[in-house]
């Protein structure tokens, strides 16, 4: 298990003076590599979350180079000073739009220029290529196509944003955390519920709670902390046998209330890279309801009836 060097603290001053310059070497090579938090980015303010003096290693110099105009504390930004396809600060990304981009609904914060946002609908799309590129009917309602020329600023819940370059690769990511992707990429629904897979060559932007952590299989991840994976086979679900037996014992003795979910992990094998974040407060993913609903097609009418009764009982319990 290795983490890319330079991650997460103590970046060196970035080349070219832009501390947020995403280096983005070809994704897919083993670390150091893709999507690695750029130098000088995401560093904490002095003393922030750091061990107190005398309790740890000395902290490398904070910051990096003096902030250029595009820094978070810099001067007022205009279309000329906004970066091209780069981070404005750790939480805001600027897409230099010339043509089309797919964007998640609600990700757009502001824009300059002549940009139109059109719903991605499966069949009545402005162009046929949308349907060909966006082959996930469950997620269609949550996405728009931004068309035109200008600069679009995107953000997501104040989370850290990172741009990733795919080079003839595939990467599966939590649907809630995908903010935007270029139309050269193809989006497909992953077998794992709540995740989507991007295939091809192009750029996409995804959010994470805290900097992204890269690990290599074999590894087991908590479903809530899993951000995505690249190049490895889809995970299987691992149940911790010891935890389960302990839990049953505890339940028998009546001492323990509820399961925490720690007994269930996604098990990764093979080769590839796993992307992790600090687990976030779960946000309602509207697609999950549609996903589950489409699965109920498998049920017989009597099964559907008893499921409905159980769901009604559960909904009433929570009120």
């Amino acid at each position: 298990m290795t983490y890319p060097p330079g991650n997460p603290y103590g970046g060196q001053p970035g080349p070219g003076g832009n501390p947020y310059g995403q280096p983005q070497p070809g994704y897919g090579q083993p670390p150091p590599g893709y999507g690695q938090p750029p130098p000088g980015y995401g560093q904490p303010p002095p003393g922030y979350g750091q061990p107190p003096p005398g309790h740890g290693q000395p902290q490398p110099g904070y910051g990096g180079p003096p902030q250029p105009a595009a820094g978070p504390t810099g001067t007022t930004l205009n279309p000329q000073t906004l970066p091209d396809d780069d981070n404005v600060n750790p939480y805001v990304f600027c897409v230099s739009l010339s043509g089309d981009w797919f964007m998640s609904k609600g990700a757009m914060l502001a824009y300059y220029g002549n940009v139109r946002f059109e719903a991605v609908t499966e069949y009545s799309s402005v162009q046929g290529w949308v349907a060909a590129r966006f082959s996930s009917p469950v997620y269609v309602q949550d996405w728009v196509v931004a068309t035109g020329h200008g600069k679009v600023l995107i953000g997501d819940r104040g989370f850290d944003l990172n741009a990733y370059d795919l080079d003839d690769g595939n990467l599966t990511i939590k649907a809630n955390n995908l903010c935007a992707f270029s139309p050269q990429l193809e989006l497909k629904q992953s077998i794992v519920p709540g995740f989507v897979t991007l295939i091809g060559t192009g750029k996409f932007i995804a959010s994470s709670n805290g900097p992204v952590i890269f690990v290599e299989p074999p590894f087991r991840a908590d479903p809530e902390a899993l951000l995505g994976w690249a190049d490895c086979p889809s995970p299987s679900v691992h149940h911790d046998a010891q935890w389960m037996t302990q839990n049953i014992r505890a339940m028998v003795s009546g001492a323990l209330g509820r399961a925490s979910g720690e007994e269930r992990q996604y098990d990764f094998t093979g080769t590839g890279t796993i992307l992790l974040q600090s687990s976030e407060v779960a946000r309602e993913d509207p697609a999950v309801l549609r996903l589950v609903e489409s699965q109920t097609q498998l049920l017989t009418p009597s099964q559907a009836g008893s499921l409905g009764q159980r769901l009604v009982a559960r909904a009433q319990q929570q009120h």
Binding site: V215, A225, Q242, E262
Partner: peptide
């Protein structure tokens, strides 16, 4: 804390305690 595990590698087991 229960529920705080993000991921692990190696032969690791978890056991609820009070």
């Amino acid at each position: 804390r229960r529920g705080a595990m993000l991921g692990y590698s190696g032969q690791v087991t978890f056991r609820p305690v009070h």
